[in-house]
Nucleic acid binder design. Structure first.
Lengths: 106, 106
DNA sequence: CTCCTATTTGCAATATTGGCCAAATAGACA
DNA sequence: TGTCTATTTGGCCAATATTGCAAATAGGAG
C-alpha cells in the first residue's frame, strides 16, 4: 500500500474514531440542536467538566465542531451536519443485525 | 440521561468505533469492491493474518460485514454500503478543515 | 489417516483511551 | 488590584485496544 493511501486512511480514521465514543456521540447529538456551552454539555453527559472539555477539544481538533468564546463561556457548534447521516446508517446496521438475530432464532 | 438513551449511544458508538481504525477502514474500502477472502485482505493491509482476522471478526460482530466459508477459505462481504457515505462526509470534514487552516494563514 | 493450506484463537507485550482530581488560565466585574 | 465563574491543561490510573507469535482448528486432497 502506498504512503499516500495510508495517510488518507489515518486521517479518516482519526475523524471516525472521534465519533466512536458514547459521550462524544451524545455531545454531537446535543450540538445538532444548536450551539451549547461546556457547562450545558457537561450537564447532559454527566462526566467531570474537564472530561467533557477534552472530548470537545478532540472533536474540534478533527474539525467536527468549532468553538466561540463569549464572555467567560465557550460555545461549541456542530460544523459537520452530515454526521447525522452517520447516525441513520449506523441505525440501519443495528436494525439489520437485530433482524439477522431474529432469523437465526426462528 | 435515561438508561435507554445510554444503551442506544453505546450501541452506536460500538459500530462507529469499529470503523474508526485505519486497517479496518482499508478492509471496508476493499470489501466495497466485492467480497474478498482473508488472505487477499491481509495482502492489502500488510499486518499479520491473525490481526486481519481479528479486525474482520470485530467488523462482523457489529454487523458491518458477513462471512461465507467456501472450501478452506472464508470470504467476507460488506453488509452496510451506507458506510461509503461516511467516507464522503468524513472527506468533506477533512476538506473543510484544510480550508479553515488556509483562512487562518491568509 | 496424513499432509497441506486457510483461518481463528490464546497469550503476552505495548499503546491508547477515558476518567477524575488538582492546578492553571481566561474573562467579568467590583 | 482581587475575586468569582467558566474552561482548559497536566498528571495519574484503570480499562480497553492493537498487534504478533505460536498453537489450535477446519477443510481439501492424496
Amino acid at each position: 500500500m502506498d504512503a499516500y493511501r495510508q495517510k488518507r486512511l489515518e486521517a479518516r480514521a482519526r475523524i471516525l474514531k472521534a465519533v466512536g465514543n458514547a459521550s462524544r456521540l451524545l455531545i454531537l447529538e446535543e450540538l445538532a440542536q444548536g450551539e451549547k456551552c461546556v457547562a450545558d454539555l457537561t450537564q447532559e453527559v454527566g462526566s467531570d467538566i474537564s472530561t467533557v472539555s477534552k472530548h470537545l477539544s478532540l472533536l474540534k481538533a478533527v474539525g467536527l465542531v468549532k468553538d466561540d468564546k463569549r464572555g467567560n463561556q465557550v460555545f461549541y457548534t456542530l460544523l459537520a451536519p452530515c454526521v447525522l447521516n452517520f447516525f441513520d446508517c449506523v441505525e440501519s446496521v443495528l436494525e439489520a443485525r437485530v433482524q439477522h438475530q431474529i432469523e437465526m432464532i426462528g
